[in-house]
Write a protein that binds this DNA or RNA. Sequence first.
DNA 1: ACGCATTTGTGAAATAGTTCTCTGGTTTTT
DNA 2: AAAAACCAGAGAACTATTTCACAAATGCGT
Lengths: 213, 213
Amino acid sequence: MASLKLNDIPPDIVIGRLPLYLRALTRLKQEGNDVTSSHELGRHLGISSAQIRKDLSHFGGFGKQGTGYQIEYLVAKLEQVLQVDREWLVIVVGAGNLGSAIAHYRGFADRGFRIAWLVDASAEKIGQKVGDLSVHPISDMQTIIRQNGVKVAMLAVPAEHAQSVADQLIDAGIRAILNYAPITIKVPDNVKVQYIDPVVHLQTMTYFLRSED
Amino acid sequence: MASLKLNDIPPDIVIGRLPLYLRALTRLKQEGNDVTSSHELGRHLGISSAQIRKDLSHFGGFGKQGTGYQIEYLVAKLEQVLQVDREWLVIVVGAGNLGSAIAHYRGFADRGFRIAWLVDASAEKIGQKVGDLSVHPISDMQTIIRQNGVKVAMLAVPAEHAQSVADQLIDAGIRAILNYAPITIKVPDNVKVQYIDPVVHLQTMTYFLRSED
DNA sequence: ACGCATTTGTGAAATAGTTCTCTGGTTTTT
DNA sequence: AAAAACCAGAGAACTATTTCACAAATGCGT
């Protein structure tokens, strides 16, 4: 297979920046650019050029001295590194306002993810149409995951149900959970979790809202 | 004023964890606990106890040897540090699926924020009811911000409009922007920005979805 | 009253991450 | 054709962050 050349073990924090590089590069491409440099990319992202070069160097030499990076090539490489050079099927748990908004969002498709199922616990939601999807009962959740080999889930249920739903997801084979519930969940080492809690971001910012300028 | 005792300048990364501590503490309180320890809190959050003690020590000694932390007291202190011991008025820009989901979400109120206005650029949305709010025209945005001294905004517009809307927000007095658009925006030093892009989180996780376990 | 188990806060040590600086190669300008 | 401007990659230096380890304080059980 020899899928990916690692010059050493890249720190997690580096992995977390790669999607940002990918996003910025895609935009630069859309704007008509064919090549870019660590300096230009850094300017777009508010990151030092040295950091970008160092980050990329963990995965191989993608650039050319004097020229910079061929955007198309670098995008392909980063997609390969992040394994989004394929399509991941995603199941969304919770068809409330948030789950529905996720199901409607058009921004997943061209970045490696297809929202393929939406499940909910409440009887009155079952069968309802949300965008292209119809809401499935949560009792079918594990079957859907197992039969389709789903590995990625988004969790948009109330905090009090997040842990038990996560347990069921993992039991059925889910290995990556994007958790919108404002609570830390416990998962085994072989499962990844990321969190989205807008209030955490807001509270981080209000800390700095002291000075009068 | 002498509002906050700082033993030294706390790193930004520490500030980013305080909302997580606050969230976990609030939950512990709800579950009927009155005191906790750095060890217990760390277990809930998947963080070492030493880190929690070190983080808190930047703002003063909130605990008691042998006993731990009085949750109510620590919550009050953290709210004070983060300045969420008051209510921040928030304006949401963009009344699409995402903006609407934000406007409906009940989780802001008890954590320091009140979603008070929802504005949108498209004529057909103006006047529509979204939860308790009605959609205002984006032409009123700066007036709303100025007249009410709004400092915090959430940005839920398409990527191509994010920068220009941000510029207008900042011009009107906004000092903290939570940006849901998948693009990095440029802001002056005295403005804080945080980003929420679910795809970035998903792509970070798929990197690790290599091994078969 | 005393010993033992707990627990904080903290300086020191250990890790981790970022920036600097230079080498070698490329492109553009004159 | 030479000079000047660019640029990636990488080791070294530097800075930041986390963990360790321990003194001092508290509460509990006997």
